[in-house]
Design a protein around this nucleic acid. Structure first.
Length: 503
RNA sequence: GUCUUGUUAGCUCAGCUGGUAGAGCACGUCACUUUUAAUGAUGUGGCCGAUGGUUCGAAUCCAUCACAGGACACCA
C-alpha cells in the first residue's frame, strides 16, 4: 500500500536519478550559517547599495521549497525555515555547468528541503532575496504537498497529520509557539514567587483528587492495577504535610470520559499549593499571573475572543449567590429556598433531577443563568459546601466554603480554595463518597487512607489552585477547540478493512 | 450517548429532478533570465469512504457501518 501513489512513484524515480547522477537525495552535509529571519534582518541595508546587491556578502540558508516559479533560464523559489520565508533567485548561468537544466529543473520540486549559497540582492519588484551561486538538495520529499493556495483545511487531515498542518499553516505554528511560551512563563512566574516545581506519580494505586473515571493499566511485576492520575492534588498536599510550603506541578491528567471542543482524555494543568495562605491570596496571585502573562506575551488587555472582547483590566469578584441575581437575573427571594428554585427552574423548562440539595440547586442556577454571561474575568466566591467537597468551610458561615472559580469568556478557567486540613472531616467526606460509590456513582471519590494518615500528622493551613492550561491557551490564542491547542489531539484510530482482509 | 452535516483526483472544491465524472492548483511535456497563487500551450491522473438494497441503469435514492465536523447530553 505504501508508495503506490503515482505522484510518489514519480518522486521516488527522481530521487533515484539524483542518486545515479551523484547527488545524495538525503544529504547529511548541511553547511547552513544563518537562519532566514537573521538573513532578512542583517541585509535590510542592501537597498542603499549600488545595484541593490552586495556580491561580497556570502550566506548559506536552508529550508523547504514552498513555491517554485520556473521561467526558462531563471527561476524564483520560496524556501521556508522555522524563522521565516525567503525568495531565492536561481539563474542558469550562475550555477555549475548543466546543473540548472539537468538537476534543478528536472529533479528538484516543491516540498524538497534545499540549501542555497549566495549573496543578498533586491529584485525589480523590491523583494529582498538571495541570488544563488550554489544549490544543494538536503532532503527529497517523495510525498507531494497540498495545494499552495488553499493549503490543507480538512480538520481530520490537520489533526491526524499535524506535521502537514505545521508545514502548510504558519498560524498553527504560531499557536503552538504561544502555548510553549505560556507554559514556560507559568513555570518562571511560580519559581520567581519561591514555588518549588515537583513531579508526583502519574500512575496511582488509588485514583483521587477529583471526581472522574480513570484509565486503568496493569503493573505486571506487582500484579496490581494502576490508575493514570485524574489529578495530582492528594500527592501535592502530602508534600505540604512534609514541610514544603509552596509547590507546583505542570503536567498531564487523564480522564476516561467524553471528548468535545473543551475535553481531551489527556490534558495539561498546573496545580499549586501554598501554605499559610488563603483563597484570598490566591485571587491576588491569579491577577498578578495574568498580568505577567499578558505583559510577556505582548497581548492587548482588551483581548478579542471570537465575537467577544474580554477586558483584562476588569477583574471582578462576586459571591455565587449574589451572582445568581445580579448576573443571572434570578429573583433574590428564589435563590435561598429549595422549593422556589425547583419551581423557578421548572418554569424555565429546565428539568431538575430529584433529590438535589440546596447547594446543588444553587449550582444548577449558576450553570444555567450565570456562567455563560461572565465574559470579563470574574472570581465567583463563597461556594455552597455541598458542591465543594475538598474545600474548607468559612469560619463565618459553615454553609459556604472558602473557594472561588475564575470565569473568563463564559468558561471556567481556574478552581481554587483554602484546603480542608481537618483529618476527621476529610475522613467523613471520603466515607460519604464511598457510600455514593456503593450506591452506583462510579465517579465518586475513593477512600485514600494514606492521605488521611498524612493529614493526621498536620497540614498547615494551605490554599491550592488548579488552572487548565489547554483552556487558558485557547483563550490567549483565540482558538475555540481544544484540538487546536494540542499538537496531537486524541483521534479514533482508522481501521483499514482492506488491510485486515489482506492479512 | 442523541441529533445533524460531511466523506468525489495528491490538495481545495463543482457535479440539479438517477444515464458509469469535472474545474483550479499540483504533476508530465514544450516555451519563457526579475517572478509574487508567475504566464501561455498541451497532456496524464478517480473502486465518487465501505458494504448491501431499489433500478434496465446509482457519485446521485434507501439501509447499515466507519471516520470527521457541529450542536446537545454527560463530565459537580
Amino acid at each position: 500500500m505504501a508508495f503506490e501513489n503515482k505522484y510518489v512513484q514519480q518522486r521516488i524515480e527522481k530521487a533515484q536519478l539524483l542518486k545515479e547522477a551523484g547527488f545524495n537525495p538525503y544529504s547529511n552535509d548541511s553547511q547552513r550559517n544563518t537562519t532566514i529571519e537573521k538573513y532578512l534582518n542583517v541585509n535590510e541595508d542592501i537597498e542603499n547599495k549600488e545595484n541593490k546587491r552586495d556580491e561580497n556578502r556570502h550566506y548559506i540558508v536552508s529550508g523547504r521549497i514552498k513555491l517554485l516559479r520556473i521561467m526558462g533560464k531563471a527561476s524564483f523559489v520560496k524556501i521556508e525555515d522555522e524563522s521565516g520565508m525567503l525568495q531565492v533567485y536561481v539563474a542558469r548561468d550562475n550555477l555549475p555547468q548543466d546543473f540548472y537544466n539537468t538537476i534543478f529543473k528536472k529533479h528538484i520540486e516543491v516540498g524538497d528541503i534545499i540549501e542555497v549559497e549566495g549573496y543578498p540582492f533586491i529584485t525589480g519588484k523590491g523583494e529582498l532575496s538571495i541570488h544563488a551561486t550554489a544549490l544543494k538538495l538536503l532532503t527529497k520529499a517523495i510525498a507531494p504537498l497540498p495545494e499552495k493556495f488553499h493549503g490543507v483545511t480538512d480538520k481530520e487531515i490537520r489533526y491526524r497529520k499535524r506535521y502537514l498542518d505545521l508545514i502548510m499553516n504558519a498560524e498553527v505554528r504560531k499557536t503552538f509557539q504561544t502555548r510553549s511560551k505560556v507554559i514556560s512563563l507559568t513555570r518562571r512566574f511560580f519559581e520567581d514567587k519561591g514555588f518549588l516545581e515537583v513531579e508526583t506519580p502519574m500512575m496511582h494505586p488509588i485514583p483521587g483528587g477529583a471526581n472522574a473515571k480513570p484509565f486503568v493499566t496493569h503493573h505486571n511485576a506487582l500484579s496490581i492495577d494502576r490508575y493514570l492520575r485524574i489529578a495530582p492534588e492528594l500527592y501535592l498536599k502530602r508534600l505540604i504535610v512534609g514541610g514544603f510550603e509552596a509547590v507546583f506541578e505542570i503536567n498531564r491528567n487523564f480522564r476516561n470520559e467524553g471528548m468535545d471542543a473543551t475535553h481531551n482524555p489527556e490534558f495539561t494543568s498546573i496545580e499549586f499549593y501554598w501554605a499559610y495562605k488563603t483563597y484570598k491570596d490566591l485571587i491576588e496571585i491569579t491577577k498578578e499571573y495574568f498580568q505577567y502573562l499578558f505583559e510577556h506575551l505582548d497581548l492587548p488587555s482588551r483581548l478579542p475572543y471570537g465575537e467577544l472582547e474580554v477586558n483584562f483590566n476588569n477583574f471582578m469578584e462576586i459571591p455565587l449567590i449574589e451572582s445568581l441575581t445580579s448576573v443571572g437575573g434570578v429573583p433574590a427571594e428564589v435563590t435561598n429556598d429549595k422549593e422556589k428554585i425547583i419551581n423557578f427552574l421548572k418554569s424555565k423548562n429546565i428539568t431538575v433531577k430529584p433529590k438535589l440539595n440546596l447547594g446543588q440547586l444553587q449550582g444548577e442556577l449558576f450553570d444555567e443563568f450565570v456562567e455563560e454571561k461572565l465574559i470579563d474575568p470574574t472570581f465567583i466566591t463563597e461556594y455552597p459546601v455541598e458542591i465543594s467537597p475538598l474545600a474548607r468551610r468559612s469560619d463565618d458561615n459553615p454553609a459556604i466554603t472558602e473557594r472561588f472559580e475564575l470565569f473568563i469568556a463564559g468558561r471556567e478557567i481556574a478552581n481554587a480554595f483554602s484546603e480542608l486540613n481537618d483529618p476527621i472531616d476529610q475522613y467523613e467526606r471520603f466515607k460519604g463518597q464511598v457510600d455514593a460509590k456503593d450506591a452506583g456513582d462510579d465517579e465518586a471519590h475513593e477512600m485514600d487512607e494514606d492521605f488521611i494518615d498524612a493529614l493526621s500528622y498536620g497540614m498547615a493551613p494551605t490554599a491550592g489552585q488548579g488552572i487548565g492550561i489547554d483552556r487558558l491557551v485557547m483563550l490567549l490564542t483565540n482558538e475555540h477547540s481544544i484540538r487546536d491547542v494540542l499538537l496531537f489531539p486524541a483521534m479514533k484510530p482508522i481501521s483499514n478493512e482492506k488491510e485486515e482482509e489482506e492479512k
